[in-house]
């Protein structure tokens, strides 16, 4: 789980062009949108692409997205749950 969280932090920095940040700057429990990292709706869509492309997991709808993208930890949990279900 912790490895996945670290990996996701690096992915997010790369995919969302947060060059002014390091993985240590991201608190895996902090909100990603609004306050916290201050991401916007395009970032959310870009994260959906990231999950599909790299982790082969699909976020099905906006409501599910809201839950999944709460924090880095919630994304990691979502990926893990999907991967467990598929194996």
């Amino acid at each position: 789980m912790n490895n996945l969280i670290e990996e996701l932090k690096n992915d997010i920095i790369e995919q969302l062009n947060l060059q002014d940040m390091t993985p240590a700057d991201i608190d895996e429990n902090a909100p990603l949108f609004g306050e916290g990292l201050g991401l916007d709706s395009i970032d959310a869509l870009e994260l959906i692409v990231l999950l599909q492309k790299k982790y082969k997991t699909k976020v099905n709808n906006a409501d599910e997205g809201k839950e999944v993208f709460k924090s880095v930890r919630s994304i990691a949990e979502f990926i893990q749950a999907k991967q467990t279900a598929n194996s």
Partner: peptide, 9 residues
């Protein structure tokens, strides 16, 4: 096929 919304805008 992974069209990037962040690039498209």
């Amino acid at each position: 096929f992974f069209p990037s919304p962040a690039l498209f805008v």
